[in-house]
Write a protein that binds this DNA or RNA. Structure first.
Lengths: 330, 330
DNA sequence: CTGAAAGCGCTTACAG
DNA sequence: CTGAAAGCGCTTACAG
């Protein structure tokens, strides 16, 4: 690839001048400017980003660390992140940790070697408190979807509010015995969903159903097994609130395999509104997360941190959830 | 972050020596070596990868360009790529093009500015022939999943063989009138699936069903509409071979919405074996693509290209497909 | 407005 | 085996 010296030579100026024309901050005479620009265009010159990075200390690159790229929730957010990064001239480096803390540490270590100007994490959870030290070491960091403490800038969903609305909706449909099949309470997002569910029940004067509030369930297979056990135990909720769409999918399968119908016999509420949630049978009534928007906000905030050079007061931004009514709740 | 000079000072040696200890190719006395290593460990020194990249010309980074990260097929391959890259000390930069050629060009341009040592593309298709020029310009390139011409190293599925086996299986189940709902024939992968289907029919002495071979269908909604029209036109295939799982999902929905049952009235064969294909009702019989393995092979090949520094003879590697029998074919 | 010089943090011939 | 020097390709004070 052609470098700045060759361009300078072709334009009959010094390398400094070429650089000044391209960065555009320092005045250059119109005449030389056009000469340089012509040479740049003609030689198809692109400044070497690595050299720029070495000089300026920034490579205009963002490290995005997600627990699992196959989980369907992260790809949606990634698009928002990517689009925003691109608009600001940043490139996104994607890292998948499999929820493995050693893998995460390795990535952070390797990317901190100047390859990355800042990090976006969707992997925050108890046990990962060391992430909280990064800002103090001068590394710009934003958390996304998952939160941990209050000291780091974060973009999350209003999980409590979303679960509250969904539960209220089910109560409004006359459903009373609403099972709650939840993820791990280690994650604040599942804790908050549980709190939203509890608040709605409390306000309606309805108690939590016995043996039908189950935590620590993850994914479709786990959802399937859990619901199969619930039904095998002779428990018959009016509805099941699954705190993720994959869980809802497994739960629907279990209900059907038990010879019952959704929503005629048991209603099912999901949470996420993943791409496929409209495609299954019955189309899933669920709580939509604005994944794309969360990605955009988080990325903007990070770029701001990077470019302003100071951390400022950290802020937790909470985006509203939205109930999407389809056919899985009666 | 601490730099090599500070480490050198702490160890009482020159920067050159620190570098030599760390790169390990040039002999250093055991005594100084241990002194340097101690300083490195104590100061937690990590060489600045950007400076290394500027010097050596390589940043140990791979650009991965996919058409759509939300499509469910790419995330599976990405894991294989990422794991392989990590093993070899490479980082993956993910780019999503939305099948938009301008976006693709922009990414290539920005990443070629030395940020990336080579590219992995899953976006090859007619109209993107300019990708074929990259190897000639000295950029290591490997195509993955999609192919274009024969001049670039490529890792793809045996699409013809997979479709052939699937069709043979359906014929073996006594199904004769097998509709074929396919993607765009612009992509060799769909052309090859069509050829496999044709070969199986031909060998069985069964003709292609009238009006039931439909190309250019993409995704679940398109699949749903197409199948709805087929049924509305009074056509009643014994089976439908959908050349992607999302299409199969939409087709199953359409069949059910028309008051028919899968597989009792109409069988449905998918293609991909995505994560959710086992979760839907009925669990999908489909052709599995070894996405992870394709990612591994493609990434290995690219790293080999990068490190050997020569392009060698390009090779198209074809991995076998595997029929996964579940419940959607009678 | 413009050029020559210094320097970003490394690596690697060149001497010794 | 080890240090001093040069250089990777830029950018940016420093002179003029």
């Amino acid at each position: 690839m052609v470098n700045i010296k060759e361009v300078a030579k072709a334009a009959g100026v010094s390398a400094s001048t070429v650089s000044r024309v391209l960065t555009g901050k320092i005045p250059v005479s119109a005449e030389t400017k056009s000469r340089v620009l012509a040479a740049v265009a003609q030689m198809n010159y692109q400044p070497n980003a690595v050299a720029q990075g070495l000089k300026g200390g920034r490579l205009h690159t963002i490290g995005l660390v997600v627990p699992n790229i196959r989980s369907l929730v992260f790809p949606a957010a990634i698009r928002g992140i990517e689009d925003t990064a691109e608009q600001h001239g940043y490139t996104v480096v994607l890292c998948n940790t499999d929820e493995n803390i050693d893998k995460e540490r390795l990535y952070i270590e390797s990317l901190r070697r100047r390859l990355v100007d800042g990090f976006l994490f969707s992997t925050a959870r108890p046990g990962h408190e060391y992430l909280l030290d990064l800002p103090d070491e001068g590394v710009p960091v934003v958390f996304l979807i998952r939160q941990l403490g209050k000291s780091v800038n974060t973009v999350v969903l209003d999980n409590e509010g979303g679960a509250y609305e969904a539960t209220r909706y089910m109560l409004g449909r006359g459903l009373r015995k609403i099972a709650f099949i939840n993820g791990s309470l280690d994650l604040p997002l599942y804790r908050h969903r549980y709190e939203g569910y509890q608040r709605a029940l409390r306000e309606a004067g309805v108690g939590e159903p016995d043996k039908l509030v189950i935590h620590d369930i993850s994914g479709w297979d786990d959802g399937y097994e859990t619901m199969t056990e619930v039904l095998a135990a002779g428990l018959r909720p009016d509805a099941v609130f699954a705190t993720s769409d994959p869980k809802a999918m497994g739960i629907i399968r279990a209900i059907r395999d038990a010879g019952l119908q959704v929503p005629q016999d048991i209603s099912v509420m999901g949470f996420d509104n993943l791409d496929f949630s409209n495609q299954i049978d019955p189309p899933l009534t669920t709580v939509a997360q604005p994944f794309y928007e969360m990605g955009v906000r988080a990325c903007r905030r990070l770029i701001h941190l990077i470019e302003s050079g100071r951390s400022g007061r950290s802020k937790i931004e909470v985006l509203p959830a939205q109930l999407v009514i389809r056919k899985s709740v009666i």
